[in-house]
Design a protein around this nucleic acid. Structure first.
Lengths: 199, 199
DNA sequence: AAGTCCAGCTTACTCGGAGTAGGTTACTGG
DNA sequence: CCAGTAACCTACTCCGAGTAAGCTGGACTT
């Protein structure tokens, strides 16, 4: 490790360090409650540096979110390789997702906070980035499913993502709902539908 | 109408007026971008009045949200009375929801903004209020469905709400997706499940 | 009719945090 | 040893949330 005074490190390294700290602070305090001064101090650097690298508070949050999203995408994409049926692919993807949100609390917390940016200049970029999330599902759908109707396929993707997002938030309140259990709930509803359970 | 100078009106009336204006401003600018000074000016009153009535900016948003949520709840609850099957009740509820978000843009926009409060002191109350949303569905479920497992029933409710929320947000980008069309997409997935569409 | 009370209202602040202007230092190649 | 520049800092401005303290119009007594 670079001993002694923590000073003068290359841009890339500082940047990673800043994001790491910011991820933590945003995750704990929430976006609104976190202050740039605090983050700067924890990094061991002065505030203008943060602005030099990320332009704004929003920019910093955005950088954190992008990283978390990349991690999530990586995890889910990896999980479904080699699945030989739509059902299996879906199940693996869901499980990977629920495992992710349990094991990487910080990252997940961050992703939830992006909503705080609705109505700000960065909202467009968020919507853009958000598309990535559904694209995997859309691709999955169009590969395994019969969907000539692209509009319907997109709708389905949004539907699945929204459902799981909310289910994930709900799960946080119940430690006894394991990722496996959550996956089962989701698969059950998504795959078989509600008609199976009607009296 | 009370002609002349807009001054000295009873508390209740002022309060309604403030909420009305705030709803508009929060809806347009977004929570973060809206300023209390601006809202006060539009109401035609000074800032401390807003604090007198709502304590904080968050409090004001909360009041707006509560009203919008009440309207949504009213609309959906009304819609399902008289339905004689689970499928019919679900369809009616969904349609009412999608109609609501199209016709009452302002209110819906506000409900989406509540996420901006994650991590603030009001988050608990939000979670509390949010439960109302799912309770209707949970009640619906337990009435029409076979669900001895309460945990599963709750999960299902969250699932449905999340899915529709996201689907609604997605719909805003496509004017051609009518409430009827959105309802069909949702019903199709919820009721029959994905297995129906697999190749 | 004059006095009193207070709900509704205002002006004029404080305070904290986002964002910035402009200068300073340490490392890098020549 | 001397640029030159990338990394960094001090010391601000500015704006918006929240507040202290006082003013006023009219309802209600007596």
């Amino acid at each position: 490790m670079t001993t002694a005074k923590r000073k003068r490190m290359p841009r890339a390294e500082r940047e990673r360090q800043m994001i790491e700290i910011a991820e933590q602070v945003f995750g704990e305090r929430g976006y609104a409650m976190a202050s740039m001064d605090e983050i700067a101090e924890l990094v061991g650097v002065s505030k203008p540096m943060l602005y030099e690298y990320f332009n704004s508070k929003e920019g910093l949050l955005l950088a954190c979110i992008r990283q978390s999203r990349a991690a999530l995408q990586e995890a889910t994409e990896q999980s479904i390789v080699g699945a030989d049926s739509a059902q299996e692919a879906l199940r693996r993807g869901l499980l990977a997702f629920f495992v992710f949100i349990r094991e990487r609390r910080q990252a997940w917390s961050l992703l939830r906070h992006e909503m705080a940016l609705i109505g700000t200049p960065a909202a467009d970029e968020i919507e853009e980035t958000r598309r990535q999330q559904t694209d995997l599902i859309t691709a999955l759908m169009s590969g395994y499913f019969d969907s000539e109707d692209t509009l319907r396929a997109e709708a389905s993707a949004e539907f699945v993502v929204g459902a799981c997002e909310r289910l994930a938030i709900w799960c946080e309140r119940f430690p006894e709902v394991t990722p496996e259990k959550a996956t089962e709930y989701a698969m059950d509803l998504l795959w078989a539908g509600l008609s199976q359970r009607a009296i």
